[in-house]
Design a binder for these strands. Structure first.
Lengths: 190, 190
DNA sequence: TATAATAGCTAATGCAATTAGCATTATTGT
DNA sequence: ACAATAATGCTAATTGCATTAGCTATTATA
């Protein structure tokens, strides 16, 4: 019997499974079961087996995040753009914990492809900064800072959960304001 | 033959292996080979098998990082303390990439123990902020911001490597200055 | 020194990934 | 329409690691 599957459809299902149960639970066996096929059949779609599946999930995740961020910053500039970008990133992670795990996977097989995967988001952050008056080098630093903050905060949030007296939302906004204020201060600096 | 091993000795070797080859390569088989014993023997030290080994590595990593940070901030206050703390954290990660991977593992089996593991570092960051004039709530926010930044930056650094035109060192210092400047600005804010 | 605990071993099991080779269903060129 | 080909699925078999069970030697202790 032919199940009428395609790489894209499989990736979408796999992403859903990863988001629901965590990336570690996404085995070829579990995925095959879900799809109603046998594990070896997956190799017809993913020659590279589990590794390739993970790589595709990573790329899929970055593409999706790029798309959402792009939408979110349309028509916005400076602080508004950065704020929208950060909130979008955070929302994405909260809704796609499994994909986010896969997206952090990009050093394995330290290849080009993986480097480029996150380059899209980096580029969008970079362009969101275009309306600020800063040197290109300052922009690179700022992109890295924002990226580090977003990734770090998201990771902690995913891992730790949100059961504190002081809400994480407040901390996120606080940190965002701090970063923006830092950016505003950076005129005269080297 | 008795190899005269103890849980502690094994963890130290395992940590070294993880740092050298990556956490994923640290299998019970590889560890047993390295130790000159057979895989099942490891269960005499780690009842819980691979899971427990990973958990112990995580705890070991946090203990070690706590120790180094504690040493680094002795006799320092305010910005000096924060700067020392951040540099120490970053240096630690660059020297212990495998352990760092294990340290991020702390949500699995979403238990108490894991929560507490990173609490030590959080506490040290918190205490490093004691000499600033800010409310307790602001301190919590700031701790989270610093922690997110450090973790995010380190992760990116570990994953991406350092082959850019703009050196990561500069970006790190830049971000650190930005955060400190943001902290300095936060007097009147809510 | 007898006894219990410790730390190692071998043998066997289970499970997921993967490979090889076969069968069936689509597709496509004529 | 139909032969050739590609695509997609299957079963059977292999590999490798984690884990369990049960045995043995060594160490520590009463």
């Amino acid at each position: 019997m032919k199940a009428g599957l395609s790489k894209e459809k499989i990736i979408i299902i796999a992403a859903k499974m990863a988001d629901e149960k965590g990336l570690a639970e996404l085995t070829l066996k579990a995925l095959a079961d879900e799809l109603g096929i046998k594990p070896p059949s997956l190799y017809k779609h993913f020659n590279g087996g589990l590794d390739e599946l993970n790589k595709e999930l990573m790329l899929y995740g970055w593409r999706m995040l790029d798309g959402e961020i792009t939408k979110a910053v349309i028509g916005k500039a400076k602080d508004d753009a950065v704020i929208a970008l950060c909130h979008t990133y955070r929302k994405f992670v909260s809704e796609h914990k499994g994909l986010f795990e896969a997206m952090q996977w990009y050093n394995m097989y330290q290849s080009e492809e993986h480097q480029q995967a996150s380059a899209g988001s980096v580029d969008i952050i970079y362009r969101s900064l275009s309306s600020y008056e800063m040197t290109d080098e300052q922009k690179v630093h700022t992109v890295r800072m924002i990226r580090a903050f977003l990734q770090g905060f998201s990771t902690i949030e995913v891992h730790v959960g949100s059961n504190y007296p002081v809400p994480l939302d407040d901390s996120f906004d606080f940190a965002l304001r701090t970063i923006l204020s830092g950016i505003a201060d950076m005129k005269g600096d080297e």
